[in-house]
Design a protein around this nucleic acid. Sequence first.
RNA 1: GGGGGCGUAGCCCAAUUGGCAGAGGCAAGGCGCUUAAACCGCCUCCAGUGAGGGUUCGAGUCCCUCCGCCCCUACCA
Length: 822
Amino acid sequence: MARPYDVVEIERKWQDRWRDEGTYNVDNDDPRERFYALCMYPYPSGKAHQGHVRNYTFGDLVVRYQTMLGKAVLSPLGFDSFGLPAENAAIKDGSHPRTYTEARIHELKTSIQRLGAVHDWRREVRSHDPEYIKYSQLIFLRFLENDLAYRAEAPVNWCPGCGTVLANEQVHADGTCDRSGDLVERKNLEQWFFRITKYADELLQDIDTLEWPERVKTMQRNWIGRSEGVEFDLVFADNDALALRVFTTRPDTGFGVTYAVVAPEHPLLDVLTLPEHDEAVRELVERAGSASEVERSSSSESGIGLEKRGAFTGSYVINPFNQQKVPVFVADYVLGTYGTGAIMAVPGEDERDYAFAQAYGLPIIRTVERPADFEGGSYNGDGPHINSDFLDGLQITEAKREATTFLEANAAGIAKVNFRLRDWLVSRQRFWGCPIPIIYCDNCGIVPVPIEDLPVLAPDDVTMTSTGQSPLATHEGFRNVTCPKCGGKGKREADTMDTFTDSSWYFLRFADPFTPGVPFDPKEVAKWMPVDQYIGGIEHAILHLLYARFYMKALVDIGLAPGLPREPFKRLFTQGMIRMGGSKMSKSKGNLIAPEMYFDTVGADSLRLFHLFLGPPADDSDWTEQSDELIDGCARFLDRLYRLAMLEEVNFHDTFDAEDLAVVRSVHRTIVRVTEGLDRWSYNTSVAALMELLNTTSKWARSEGGAHQATLDDAVDTMLKLLAPMAPHMPAELWEIRHGVSSSLHAQSWPVADEAMLVNETVVMAVQINGKVRARLDVDPEISEDDAARAAQDSPEIQRALEGATVQRVIARPPRLVNIIS
RNA sequence: GGGGGCGUAGCCCAAUUGGCAGAGGCAAGGCGCUUAAACCGCCUCCAGUGAGGGUUCGAGUCCCUCCGCCCCUACCA
């Protein structure tokens, strides 16, 4: 494609200028209204891919648009630079993860700048910078002081592929690793945890205050998984000094309990198991324990209704509701980590209990009356209680209340709220992460590294392995230290922190990376927080976005961030994915279409426009064979604008006539349409509106009658301004050509439409007879209902069409249409 | 199994509170420009909105049923 200007050169010129002049640097004491625009900081994987392009195109649009609206816009960027790929690459080719990572950062940063995205690079944060490590560690120690970090042994998810443990959030439902796809194994290990569950209720409640996509909010609510119920005792039948503690959300079904179940990990299992059942129980426990999560949770392809495996322990407990003896089973469908690890089983009203009861021939008692036409096993709908003594006739809500009161009086019961959310396991047996600043001393136990000794940095001469042990564990020089407390021998913690800890506070550092000696000065940060617009991928709906919310609340509570809002991200936008052939575009699938290729040819402006124009920003889009043609179409649009602005083939006339007025009206209507599009994340329609205006304007200016010069100039200038946030380079160049080097397009104010120009003298009103359009009339836009109805019936076409018919009803909706029913 | 989303022209997509189905782009075809082609300019073609039913003067839009595709989630008692 022959272009009317040198795309690559112009884009480079403006990118250099924005960077070198710090055009988008912004100071914390800027007097303008503030706006904090943030794209999720990327893992530096090398040159940008189309997903990055989409993300940063949207982000940059917000930055430039808000700037033109007169605000001081904070637009920082950094790199989530710790993580496994760098370490794995290092293991493979013998380089140091830092060397590898910094090379990738350079590539990605270059790509982002070549896209024309602008940032205040003075605020750049990289997770692996010693300064950032220092404060990540400081936060860890403050968490420890405030009982938000603790060490415990727990069954953990261990990924053999990554050679490390993972948080629950990083394991898929099918038991595979979020990163490597390997089957995750369960191991009992001593690990560090963050007490995110302390904030479970607040994290849940505050979701309501967020302007986030409903989808993401729902996902977080489900993940936190609050459920209200009762915890109570089932006393052993042959020893009333012992009891099995169970949790239920359906105390109202207590009369339907026909057995109890404990998890294979349950501490009382040994006590419960009688000798003659020992073998069966042990077999069950072994299978559940050694089996990966995937085997344990997917023994049938149909999900629910799967084979419930269990064994009778030989013991019985007493149902406090009716004093009946019921058998205690151990089964793998009860989880040791939820509730009390034991349940009362009610097959009549719980489908899992029903399936188990069926398989093991256990009795089923209905305690809620089923609708007459109900088919199937368990029934969990509402209805009057039956077979339930004092609960008979009550609906679920009331029966629950009564049953809870009963259990509180008779079975050591207590109303309780349980959460699905678990504490956040942050230990990672890897090298390329932030070292956990802890020393283990034979005398003193767990000793925090003194603040003045931070940061704890990993040494460079470490052999990378993925054997399941931290690479740092074998480095004697790093490991062996004197205990800061007693001076005795100590060993450093060899694990590093989950990299999600780094991304949980970087947005605070961005707001103030300038104050020495602290991670950030809350007073400075308060000038920007919360983030006004956060933009990123839906894949972080739970992980990052939940962790960051937790950090925010915790940092405020422990005094590191006093006076700051308790929620970090006020508004969130999740952009759609770019798919290819139906699946996600990714390096591993080898279907990447490198943006660099487009920067070198059609230019960043065209690629940006393509991403904006492709479809609704929130929707997934496909990269197809047609994409290159669409990108060319965007380039063509830019070129046409360029030629018009350079007055190629344009004719002029002197007086301002009706056609000029029509163009002025189009310009103002376009201002409204583009602005509305930007405000409601409908970028595709904003672009379309601009294309339409260009079509109108070109035709008019190139017609024989020609254009009124001032009108054309204004139309072109307005188009350049409206286009500036979307495709920032060429319009900036044109503006400079037209207005001189001292005037900058991006420093212009966003155009405001003149209300008077938004109304036409006449509009076309459709006249229907029985819903069919029979005439179109030019009417005053302010026409009244009566006048509209009269005008419609007076029009010759309508009179002709109505000949011989009786008008039964006239519906007038001025000034759009009149419908005559005959 | 549960939750959410989407089906409009050959393709990507528009369409205020229900109010004339088409804004924009791509592709295709034609004409002009050109020695020719590309580029460029102008013009044209194309659907009745996945299927069926309902509400309404009027439904792409609201309600019900069905079909197709996509995403999330999944033994949490």
